[in-house]
Nucleic acid binder design. Structure first.
Lengths: 150, 150
DNA sequence: CACCTTTTCTGGAATCGTTCAAGAAAAGTC
DNA sequence: GACTTTTCTTGAACGATTCCAGAAAAGGTG
């Protein structure tokens, strides 16, 4: 085993961890693998994935890893209203999310708002903006068809 | 007392409640007054405001009022990541929010993304979008100056 | 390679915000 | 004024996340 590498051609996680000044630990590698293989998972789901990959790990270790990795910009965290935290590997493209009101599923959408006004830091009466987060709410294809009579 | 009316010239809350098929109760009127007088409050803060206005009210009554009023479109609820629910009187302008990463304060911003792409329902691979929510993250003026050395 | 310092993980409890559930009270109807 | 339905009270439950103290592991150093 030991994928421990995001993708052939990319730097293995261990390198990215060291580059961020973080120690390379089993839980962190496992968290990265799980999040990389399935974006938008909750802490709970990530915990399950990590445990099935490397055995017993404390809940705290997962949260610690998620928080640390997020702080270092390796993961990106978001939290649609009514949902718990969700994570994805940070790729720096500032894409946005479609969230299904019915089943809570999340889908990525490229930042398609014209010429990305959302990436442009603005200033509003002294308020310094560093990020614009867009969440599209609606129904996913499955839930649409499930709710349609015919 | 008994403001019970959003604004001179606007319909009193009782009318709006009845129009929505809801009974007119003290807790609901008080919730509306509090939210109207200070947008972006949390359920907790609203509870405090309501209690100081009409005396003892159960926490549950507040949550019930908030949920019901939100369902009926009289209030608008939003929930910046890391924060609890926040409420404002729904005015139908689909404005957005600036959220301070440091102190959590919220400020309204008009939907200024060009010609409001955010209000235009899109469809993406069967995903039917009915709302676009934009959250700007950054630092409010106070926190900016507090964090600046000089 | 053994040692040492620092970071990270374990285990368990605590916390916050929100919801659930059953019965009492109030609103609106006839 | 009695009746039906909605709303409120009380009190417990719940999920997600964090806090804490001590044990274990990571990785630099001699």
């Amino acid at each position: 085993m030991e994928p421990a590498s995001p993708d052939p051609g990319e730097q293995p996680w261990s390198i990215r961890l060291r580059a961020a000044g973080l120690r390379v630990t089993q839980p962190r590698l496992a968290v990265l693998d799980v999040v990389d293989s399935a974006p938008h998972l909750s802490a709970d789901q990530i915990t399950a994935g990590v445990r099935s990959a490397i055995g017993a790990v404390s809940t705290q270790a997962i949260y610690d890893a998620l928080n640390t990795l997020t702080e270092q910009g390796i993961l990106r965290r978001f939290e649609p209203a009514g949902s718990s935290m969700r994570f994805e590997v940070s790729v720096g493209d500032n894409h946005h999310h479609l969230v299904c009101r019915s089943c809570g599923s999340v889908r990525d959408v490229p930042c398609a708002l014209g010429s990305m006004p959302c990436a442009i830091p603005q200033e509003t009466e002294g308020f310094v903006v560093d990020e614009a987060e867009v969440t599209y709410w609606g129904l996913c294809a499955d839930c649409v068809s499930a709710s349609t009579p015919e």
